[in-house]
Computed example of a mutant assay.
Amino acid sequence: MNEPQREIRAAHTESTITVYQAYAPEIGLAAVREGRFPAAWKRDRMTWIKPSFLWMMYRCGWGTKAGQETVLAVEISRDGFEWALRHACLSSYVRGVHPDQATWQRQLKRAPTRVQWDPERDLHLRPLPYRSLQLGLSGEAVRRYADEWTVAIRDVTPLAHAVHAQVKAGQLDAATRMLPKEQPYADGAELLSHLGG
């Protein structure tokens, strides 16, 4: 199966898209209880959201890494997600995309969101030859994410542990069936076209 080198794949509906984050229980469980990020959640720092469940599993070690024991599925509005894509800058300088490094640095400083493409992961969390989106939110984007875009927050830590148990048992088909159904995000390439590919 030939996957595009860079493509946004996500669980989404007509009006929402699901992204993942992992936090210590005092933040994550409070967010689930309240349906919004609690006061202890830092709005003044960059936060990274990931539409890929398996990339999140790689990042948080199936919800076992310190400070990342609670894995959240955050359902946000597509309008908000698309605003974030339209206002994004690449997280690193790319020759041929940016006129020069100084121009990229100015764009990065002004942009409320940044795009980073990281290797997608398989069930063993090994890198695949194609990449998935990580979206960094800062400043205005963090506030919009927390106060406007978030529709629902679910604790998917039990799912992370259950999928991992199937992988450890060698039951890869069963593990695959448990994964969130991620599909290509149809307008993703167009929304990111200002980044030069």
Rank of each mutant, 00 (worst) to 15 (best):
M1F: 14
E3F: 13
I8C: 08
A10V: 08
A11H: 11
S15H: 05
T16L: 07
A24L: 12
I27F: 13
R36N: 00
F37G: 00
P38N: 12
A39L: 10
A39H: 05
A40I: 03
R43K: 08
W55P: 14
M56A: 14
W62L: 14
G63W: 10
T70N: 10
E75I: 05
R78W: 12
G80V: 02
W83T: 14
A84M: 08
A84P: 06
V94Q: 07
P99S: 03
T103E: 06
Q105V: 09
R110M: 13
A111L: 12
V115K: 03
E120G: 13
R121A: 14
L123I: 08
L123V: 12
P129E: 10
S138K: 13
V142E: 07
R143V: 10
R144H: 13
R144I: 05
E148W: 11
W149A: 15
V151F: 02
I153A: 04
L159K: 11
H161W: 12
A165P: 04
A169R: 09
A174T: 05
A174C: 04
T176I: 03
M178V: 07
L179I: 04
P180W: 00
Y185V: 02
E190H: 06
E190L: 01
L191R: 03
L191Y: 02
S193V: 00
H194V: 00
G197S: 06
